[in-house]
């Protein structure tokens, strides 16, 4: 009688111990996931942060060095008139708008594209193997969506992009390639901003 009970006790003990191990593993996995998210995500918008975007770019460049057909685009997007939102409606409203813009961007790109917050009201999107027609259309499509969504606040967007390998010639250092791609996209975004401003004034 006691022997049977002892076997049951040992089985129950084993089950309890196994369950506790499982719980502990799940907890550790959750913790690791949370730590990973904290390390790679922008805390306000939930988009990838600048550091992660730059690491992602670095990997893409390395991949492209092995595969000569690899192409990608770096899109630089800046919100126009965002400073006035913070000044007029307060930072909470500004944060709310940044979160909504982040959602719009996430929904406007493919899952395989990387959408990140570069800082402030600037966003960088990396699109692999893009069709350049699509990129051109994207500018006007994104501008339309954002202008409509934030009509009451007078917000618009300026967009510029650089392309790999098209915009990079004779640069071998990976860090330098990253800087160049970002700088070109940033400059083009400013040109775009200026063009639209001039257009408005004329």
């Amino acid at each position: 009688m006691r022997e049977k009970i002892k076997i049951k006790i040992l089985q129950a003990l084993l089950e309890e111990v196994t369950k506790k191990y499982d719980d502990s593993i799940t907890e550790k996995e959750k913790l690791l996931q949370k730590m990973f998210e904290m390390a790679v995500n922008d805390s306000l918008t939930g988009l990838y942060n600048r550091q992660y975007m730059q690491n992602y770019l670095l990997n893409l460049i390395k991949k492209a060095k092995r595969n000569k057909n690899e192409k990608f685009a770096v899109i630089f997007l800046d919100l126009d008139n965002f400073k006035s939102i913070n000044d007029s409606f307060g930072h909470n409203k500004g944060d709310e708008i940044l979160k909504e813009v982040a959602n719009i961007l996430k929904n406007s790109f493919r899952e395989c594209d990387l959408v990140s917050r570069y800082g402030g009201d600037e966003f960088v999107i990396i699109v692999e193997n893009p069709s350049f027609e699509v990129l051109d259309n994207l500018k006007s499509r994104l501008r339309n969506i954002i202008e409509t969504e934030f009509k009451d606040f007078g917000i618009s967007v300026s967009i510029g992009f650089s392309c790999f390998p098209k915009d990079i010639s004779n640069v071998k250092d990976e860090e330098e390639i990253i800087n160049k791609l970002l700088t070109i996209a940033d400059n083009r975004m400013y040109e775009n901003k200026k063009e639209r401003k001039d257009k408005k004034l004329s």
């Binding site: 049951k8 089985q11 003990l13």
Partner: peptide
């Protein structure tokens, strides 16, 4: 709850 669950498994 842990102990009650344990006792259920022992069935005693």
């Amino acid at each position: 709850d842990v102990i009650k669950n344990f006792m259920e498994k022992i069935d005693n």
